[in-house]
Amino acid sequence: MIAQIISVIGQTALVLLFSPLITAFSRTIKARLQTRRGPGLFQPYRDLHKLLRKGMVIPETASWIFTATPYVLFATTLLAGLLIPTIATQAPLSLFGGVLAVVYLLALGRFFLALGGLDTGSSFGGLGSSREMTISAIAEPALMLAVFTVALGAGSTNLSSVAQAAVGQSWRFLSPSQMLAFAALFIVLIAETGRIPVDNPATHLELTMIHEAMILEYSGPCLALIEWSASMKQMVLMTLLVNVFFPYGLSADGSPLGMLISVALFVFKLLILALAVVLVETGNAKLRLFRVPELLAVAFVLSALALISTFLFGVHGG
């Protein structure tokens, strides 16, 4: 029981404190690739600190939904973070919700965020929520099918069991179904975290923005919570990807040295994935909104192929 509580607190701290770093890392690498210096690795922390200390302006048209949204978003995203294994195969709350719960908790947060966008009454908010809900809806089948493929291989939707099943199978990531599912989830990751070519996190041009349009009216502590949640969501989805497909270094024992190695490997894997995302972002132009379904259709077919591969290629495919 005590160990359980410690692991909950530990993982909460890990998700809370580490997630802005990934955002910072992505930004820095992106800046370097564009031959800029970038703001440094601690900028997101400074931003959060600054925003939390500021006053805030609430639109006069808004209701309690607007103020409640950041809290719901923050709590759901953080809770999703507690359901996935990070440094050990056993996630603190894994028993209380598997991958379906993760997906639906994130959906709950998004539901409120979209309502928050509509609550302001400005057309930016509505535009953002409309696009966000659309893209997440058409990303959902690809996400679910890929997740199913992984869950079928492990015989469970509980992420700890999935990671457990993956540990110790060498060459597993070389099987086509795993690679295809990874590719599909990678596309979904880009769509869900609002990166180029789906959305541009750095834009404020109304024709192209999605996520930024929804949160245009937020300020001060509320904005801090939303930004923080976005970082956490990115970390949650990335962790899902790296730990399900490359479960190397998930420590089964609890020895301090083992933990240390696990943490180091975990950070390393996340940074590699972040690098991949940044490379995609830098190498591509943003897609027109109505080209996004094409990308997601490809993701869907990739995950369908992943599923078919589990029996298409006989024993070694799965």
């Binding site: 060459w171 070389l174 099987s175 086509p176 690679m179 295809l180 590719a183 094409e294 259709a297 490809v298 077919v301 990739l302 192929l305 591969s309 290629f313 070694h316 495919g317």
Partner: peptide
């Protein structure tokens, strides 16, 4: 041969993905 089998399987899957890429 098992390794060979894996590699062939993997490459075949990539071939299929490339075919679909061409469609897309």
């Amino acid at each position: 041969p098992q390794f060979g089998d894996r590699m062939i399987t993997l490459m075949a899957a990539l071939v299929l993905v490339l075919q679909i890429t061409m469609v897309a």
